[in-house]
Write a protein that binds this DNA or RNA. Sequence first.
DNA 1: CGGTATCCTGTCGGATACTG
DNA 2: CAGTATCCGACAGGATACCG
Lengths: 130, 130
Amino acid sequence: MTGDMTWTASGSADPENACPIAPVVDIVFSRWTTPILWTLNAHGRQRFVELERRIARITPKVLTQRLRQLERDGLVSRTYHPEVPPRVEYEITGLGRSLAPLFAGLTEWASAHLDEVERARHDYDGTPGR
Amino acid sequence: MTGDMTWTASGSADPENACPIAPVVDIVFSRWTTPILWTLNAHGRQRFVELERRIARITPKVLTQRLRQLERDGLVSRTYHPEVPPRVEYEITGLGRSLAPLFAGLTEWASAHLDEVERARHDYDGTPGR
DNA sequence: CGGTATCCTGTCGGATACTG
DNA sequence: CAGTATCCGACAGGATACCG
């Protein structure tokens, strides 16, 4: 399909990090960002508490931090409604939605290969002499 | 093409983490794993020092830790040659290579949208009153 | 409601030194 | 060469309390 030639050997190898996708990984796959993006995409525009409830175990502090980061990166938009009580809504942006195929690919890989990983782990752990 | 329906809203929402791809992210996108996988795929079978040199700034301790994890997950294979001096070779497995389309997708997303992220960051930082 | 402030702990990873 | 052992500092993230 697309871009397969990007995943091949070439004489390059950047001196700093020999991995061209490192920046994307930092943006999209830092801790908590995938659950947040996933929830926002799956359930549409949501308020802070809704996110807090759906993403179990996340603390408000961390949720705020990650939402700010995602907003700064343009993946999520924040709308403040000056009411009493105040209402804030978060929504995934077009840029954020452009990650959809990637997430779909991840999901597909998971269902196809996750059990294989599980088996490998079991074999590794079960092998004596490590 | 494939698996797009997995990235849609449905009544599910797992209680623990509302994000089905969380396990994959842990496996593939934990720190240093992408540079390692990328290098192994790009340059083929390599010795420890080769990896160490190509992945700048990584320390031998951390490289060992991550390689062990990748080996346990079945993404990388380790071959020990009992010689003097000893020789160890690391190679990406078939399971590891099955991540190729995903990495290609990431690369493509980067070239298509990374500048947009950069612009969003600049706008965000430049907007007063935050 | 939607956060922020403060404190505190656990863990990741760096530095250094050493070994089969 | 290919690691391991040990020490250590930084900081992400949890718990708790408080505010507009």
